[in-house]
Design a binder for these strands. Sequence first.
DNA 1: CTATGGCACGGATT
DNA 2: AATCCGTGCCATAG
Length: 471
Amino acid sequence: MALPSQILYPGAQQRPQATAHLAQTMSLLGLNAQELNARIEAALAENPALELLEGRHCPSCGRTLRSGASCQACTQAKAQGDEPLVFLAPTDSGFSAEGRSGEELPEDYTGAQPETLGTYVLRQIATELDPLEQEIAAHILTGLDEDGLLTFPLLEVARYHHVPLVVVEEVVQRIQQADPLGVASSSPTEALLVQLKSLGNQAPNAELCAKAIREGMTMLGKRQYAELGNLLGVSKAKAEQIADFITQNLSPYPARAHWGNLGTPNADAPSTYSRPDIAIRQQEDQRLVVEVMWPLRGLLRVNPLFQQALREAPEDKAEQWKLDLEQANLLIKCLAQRNHTIVRLMQILAVLQRHFITAGDAYLKPITRASIADELGVHESTISRAVSGKSVQLPSGKIVPLSQFFDRSLHIRTALKQIIRAETQEGKTYSDTKLARLLEQQGFAIARRTVAKYRMMENIEPAHMRKAQAA
DNA sequence: CTATGGCACGGATT
DNA sequence: AATCCGTGCCATAG
């Protein structure tokens, strides 16, 4: 059954379910992977007709899936010419209609991506460990998910190798010091703390940072700087500074963001603390690969046994069960459509913002959600919901909110920072008025007052302060 | 007098 | 209908 939205919308009167369907699709679209996960878990708990296959096999190709990731090999859709590949999440058995038009991938993906992270880390530390420790390390490293976090408790490892927990913990500590710093932590919080600690006194306000990470993670994620300031007992501006430092220098998912190249000149752009909902990477042949995350470890479907049971249902339950079944089908259908919408959105965005994705902030084109809605033939609010709350990981490793793809001024702000960075090297300081003129030469006609706004957005001090700083 | 930040308005966007 | 954004005007600091 194909499920193009065009068919569902006009048919609303004929299908009494359609309004419910629409309402639910919309509410799901606004959720990010994390929230969706919670939503589905709730549904699983209260609806007996739903079933989660934990086996994590792709319904179409049977490959084993790695946790949380989409099934890359079988659900890819290869667009023609210049367009990027889009890898989808595996959809539910009956509704994998979208995005499967492409031919099979030539190379074997499970082969192309072996346990590189694990072996990479092990190679670094192998010499420091004795044979038993090596074995333990190997055991631990095979248990990493693709974020570089641990998937099982250390106690399990200890029991398996018949050693006290301390020994395992010690090995973990060594691993955490290896290259993706903080790898093999059991939570994003722990990973951040490890990284912070290794920075030592290079980190200003180390204690405050640590406290922010330990107790203020939710605030960090939501950017509630005022609340964070309260927690730490500092001003909002200070809290913002701390959050900035953390986002720029630490990575909650060690295996994801690049840790190595600290030297990136434009070391800002906010990053979100939730796991990305979408990941974009670039292949050697320059093409972009967009991966939409599936929030569950497993396959959600209607329990076939439940369907059977319905036929022999006792009178008093029959009504309720039928309802459950409808609900379950609806949920699955809506999930499929949610995916569909996000994928179509990303297909357009990947083409439109290719330069931004590959080359950085300066190349962001100002586009509006409305224009995308127009192009896709959906309502503006659909795009709004699809964008809100989602985060994307760029090929550079940065995790940014999807809404940044629609930032109207990021490219100008980047140019502004560029000018100011050069300015300090030449020993000059430009006033806002001069900055406005300089930007105009680059083709950005903005008012002097706006320059000031942008400066503040980027936490750049006014001209006279910068002058003092340079001296 | 110059450089900035605050406030608020109007138009665009969501 | 609510929110965001660029700007102009005005007060204040240097």
